[in-house]
Design a protein around this nucleic acid. Structure first.
Length: 467
RNA sequence: GGCCCGUUCGUCUAUCGGUUAGGACGCCAGGUUUUCAACCUGGAAAGACGAGUUCGAUUCUCGUACGGGCUACCA
């Protein structure tokens, strides 16, 4: 293994939002770099000018930022390095590793159509590969790699194992287009080399490309990076993830209220494992992550499991961190943020909220009794519980609350006594109490609510309900 | 069509020739309970198929089937 420090990179093309598969690829690269104390770099592959947009770049950056995948150094624009790519293409040309090809796109397309019709290989063998310079016409040309026609190229992939490719099946890929711009195939190699990338961790849709790219490394005399091609994430139906599966962009997950910590945990677990560990912190993931833990088969995205993991993280997060996350969530989703007073109450009540929510919005829903204010308008179900009999019992309870010590034990004792005095169990008055305090039928424990909002507010709400 | 990769409970996965094939999510049943959630106990649930190697295959090899990827002057 090289003694060079580990350098990984995530290299998305800015043609849309950061999708969930890309996010996982980024996460693996990030975890690997952090595990080794190396660098994680970000490169935007924007050489396709027609499809690249600054909006997409911004969305990718936002997604990375939300997931907490911080990169080292500046964001590299592949397009900005076009001159360097052209330089390398010409170096290969000068060294005899590449050649000028004057075949037009129409000629090549016609060849392929014919080959396809005949059921023959569509591999295009340029007639210009060995043409003498004095036979070159004065016409536009591309620079093609002069790939070896014999032997084989082996990709020693850290996930897939050794993969062999017959060189005769590899085409002379275009490095520089006829307009002088570089192709991705060339640019990716030049950039990875120049950026000092030691480990290329990417989707296995690039596995075939790795063979042709290896040829460029070899031609230039550069070190070939360590390859790790990870399986793609599939949709619930096992097919390739696509828009019809919904929720593809990471920002949508943010908007659904999954904590970033939970997303990192779930995404890491998708295709990577560390024994039977399911729930872990980011710090643990960094400590444990390695290429040998990556599986070889594609995995499917499962919201049920994400929900579960998310719930565990919410329960485990610090109260203040959760209050902060609620604030961030509200801001991102364009909702009014909480007042200082509400935040204070949220912090005080978080202990009885966080054990029961799988996502941030669910957490907010459970906190309705904190966020609401008098007079409380009970919803339909709650209103039903506040019948005359129940109101009568609450009327007995309310004055007793005036002087008891405001602790869970005494509140529970008083409530139970009132219930028994009415020949009922506590369960009988829990519903009406809940309805009166929150105006809802699903809330935290009634005693927890009383403790959080305090004696004065409790009595006021009960008095309102008694009417 | 050609090349490449993959295939363990419904899902995510453990297993690195010898296990009653383990865990998690989900599901079902029961328990607890102050609604929801949580929690506790129990349960159903898997090696795609066929050969071969071996004393012994989920594990190694080959074939088949199925799924996926690539096959652009896209990335």
């Amino acid at each position: 293994m090289p003694s060079r420090p580990v350098v990984t990179r995530f290299a998305p093309s800015p043609t849309g939002y950061l999708h969930i598969g890309g996010a996982r690829t980024a996460l693996f690269n990030w975890l690997f770099a952090r595990h080794h104390g190396g660098e994680f770099q970000l490169r935007i592959e924007d050489t396709d000018r027609a499809r690249s947009t600054p909006e997409a770049t911004a969305a990718i950056l936002r997604g990375m930022d939300w997931l907490g995948l911080d990169h080292d150094g500046d964001v590299v624009s592949q397009f900005a390095r076009a001159d360097r790519h052209a330089e390398v293409a010409h170096q290969m040309l000068d060294a005899g590793h590449a050649y000028k090809c004057f075949s037009t796109q129409e000629e090549i397309a016609a060849f392929r159509d014919a080959a396809k019709a005949d059921g023959k290989s569509t591999l295009f063998l340029s007639p210009w590969r060995d043409a003498a310079a004095d036979s070159h016409p004065d016409a536009p040309y591309v620079i093609r790699m002069k790939a070896p026609r014999d032997g084989q190229t082996v990709i020693d992939d850290q996930v897939q194992g050794p993969v062999k490719f017959e060189n005769k099946l590899l085409d002379d890929m275009i490095c520089l287009r006829s307009d002088g711009t570089p192709t991705y195939m060339l640019a990716v190699v030049v950039d990875d080399h120049d950026m000092g990338v030691t480990h290329v961790i990417r989707g296995d849709d690039h596995l075939n490309n790795a063979a042709r790219q290896t040829l460029v490394y070899t031609a230039m005399g550069w070190d070939v990076p360590v390859w790790a091609h990870i399986p793609l994430i599939h949709g619930p139906d096992g097919k390739k993830l696509s828009k019809r599966h919904g929720a593809l962009g990471v920002e949508e997950y943010q908007a659904m209220g999954y904590p970033a910590e939970a997303m990192r945990n779930y995404l890491a677990r998708l295709g990577w494992s560390h024994g039977n560990d399911e729930f872990f912190t980011t710090a643990q993931a960094i400590a444990w992550f390695g290429l040998d833990g990556i599986g070889k088969s594609p995995s499917r995205f499962d919201f049920k499991k994400l929900d579960n993991i998310s719930g565990q993280h919410i329960a485990a997060l610090e109260d203040q961190a959760l209050v902060d996350q609620i604030g961030a969530f509200l801001a991102v989703t364009g909702q009014p943020v909480l007042s200082d007073e509400q935040n204070k109450l949220m912090l005080r009540g978080m202990y009885c909220l966080k054990e029961r929510a799988k996502t941030i919005p669910l957490l907010i829903e459970k906190a309705e009794f904190i966020l609401t204010s008098r007079p409380i308008a009970p919803d339909e179900k709650a209103a039903k519980l506040l019948d005359s009999v129940s109101r009568g019992i609450l009327n007995q309870l309310t004055p007793l609350l005036q002087d008891v010590s405001w602790t869970r034990d005494t509140l529970e004792q008083v409530a139970t006594e009132v219930a028994e005095a009415n020949d009922a169990k506590f369960g009988k008055i829990a519903g009406p109490l809940r309805a009166a305090l929150a105006g809802r039928t699903t809330t935290p424990s009634v005693f927890d609510m009383m403790l959080v909002i305090g004696r004065e507010e409790t009595i006021a709400r009960l008095t309102d309900a008694i009417g």
